[in-house]
Amino acid sequence: MHLSAVDVTAVGKSYGGARVLDNIHAQFREGSFTSLLGPSGSGKTTLLRIIAGFVAPDTGRVRIGAQDVTTVPVHARNIGMVFQSYALFPHMTVADNIAFGLHRRGIRGAELQRRVADVLAMVKLGDFAQRLPKQLSGGQQQRVALARAIVINPTVLLLDEPLSALDRRLRQEMQVELRRIQRDSGLTTIFVTHDQEEALTLSDHVAILDRGRIVQEGAPIAIYERPTSRFAAAFLGDANFLSGRVVEGGLQVGTQTIRISGTVTPTVAVRPEKMTLLPEGASTDGFDNLLPATVRQVVYAGAATTYLLDGADGTPLRVFAQNREGTPAEPGSRVTLGWSAAHTIPVTD
């Protein structure tokens, strides 16, 4: 029994001198849902295509299941892949699209019919078997692409930004659907996305890529609550960065000493929703850290308000507040921001 379904060891790739992937090590646990999250050019798609076999790595090994597949061609890897543009065969019906991979595996007749019908039911497209792809909506095409990829019982399911072509509402529906199907099928899934919210909602495990390296990986909550680098903190969610001088017991920022849980670094990050906006004269009890600021702009959005502020030294700050009570602070008013040491995260630059 293997602990990981997919193993990437020391993989590197360059295109004409440009280093796209640099010494990547990653394990993808059996049955897990992992997101490769990063901006465009971070190498996440290249990594996925190396696992799929469309791109050969310059260095390193790729293992899928028990087999080292580094030199195995795509068609012999038993992967399921969903492409960004779905890549449905336009000259085949939905049923023929789904049967394609089964056919390649020598499955015919009644079993073929049964498995196509089963997977169509799973993606709730039972009545669409005889349609052509162009007769389906974007969301339906997406589900056909997913059905076609999972019907062959792949060792690993690879998804290349499959939701990016859908509108927001449909995308959220598909996220729920995708998660359900992945749980039901128990398939080890690797999902490439540049959408941080998608990565947080869908995955058990997130790997953040930047310039060809995995800068941090872990459970979504761990990555969000404890980013280790400035890049990870800024790319996954919003963050306020405070820089200062490392002193006894914390970080000296202006005249304030910011207290930190963990090793003090010259830069710390604080999530905007962890800070509380205290009007002049309000009690500052119960906060480990306090920082004076001036409200620059108030962005009211119904349930919540975003405050854009300037710190004493002009550092731009933002605070998210739920609109539970009272009137929001006016632009130009002087306030104090309060938060706890536990929410003060040391990060590397």
């Binding site: 068609h75 076609r148 990829a149």
Partner: peptide, 25 residues
């Protein structure tokens, strides 16, 4: 589109089969 042949390969087609089953039609 080229990704059609890639999709065929991911489903188990050799490059030759992908060409004859997808691109040629």
């Amino acid at each position: 589109r080229r990704d059609l042949e890639e999709a065929a390969k991911s489903l188990g087609s050799t490059p030759l089969h992908a060409f004859f089953a997808v691109t040629l039609p």
